[in-house]
Amino acid sequence: MDPHTIIIAASAISVGVILAAAGLGSAIGWGLICSKTLEGIARQPEMRPQLMFNMFIFAGLMESFPFIIMAFALWFLFANPFIA
């Protein structure tokens, strides 16, 4: 097998792993953000507006993470710097 084919195959596998990890990490992050917000509201109901505001801020930050990772993955897929 020539090195060019190996590099392309390894890049395709690594892009799949990168995207799977980004999706899993985002899902876990969403779950933790929402569960901790609900736990905080259950403990102090009067803090609900502040907790919801913070939850949406952090959720927006968590939502940007998979898109940034997807951009890097697509860069490795279509403009692979390892191919000479």
Rank of each mutant, 00 (worst) to 15 (best):
N80W: 06
F58R: 06
G23K: 09
G25K: 05
F56R: 03
I7P: 06
F76Y: 13
G25F: 02
I8L: 11
W30R: 09
P81C: 13
R48F: 00
Q50S: 04
L74C: 12
S14T: 15
P3S: 13
I57H: 01
F82V: 11
I7H: 07
I7T: 14
P49F: 00
M70D: 06
G29I: 01
D2F: 08
I18S: 14
I13H: 09
I57Q: 02
I69V: 15
L61K: 03
I68E: 09
K36P: 00
P49M: 01
G29W: 01
F76D: 06
G29P: 01
M52A: 03
L74R: 09
L77I: 05
F67D: 06
M47Y: 02
S26P: 01
A10F: 11
A73Y: 07
P3M: 11
L38E: 08
L77C: 08
H4Q: 12
I68V: 15
F82M: 14
L19S: 14
M1L: 12
V17F: 15
A71Q: 07
P81F: 07
E39K: 10
M55L: 06
A59H: 01
R43W: 04
M47C: 05
Q44G: 02
A12I: 10
N54E: 01
W75R: 11
G31T: 04
M55Y: 00
A84S: 12
N54L: 01
P81L: 12
T37M: 03
F58K: 04
R43C: 06
I69F: 10
I41C: 04
L19V: 14
A21T: 15
E39Y: 06
M62G: 05
G31Q: 03
A59G: 03
L74H: 08
D2I: 09
F65T: 14
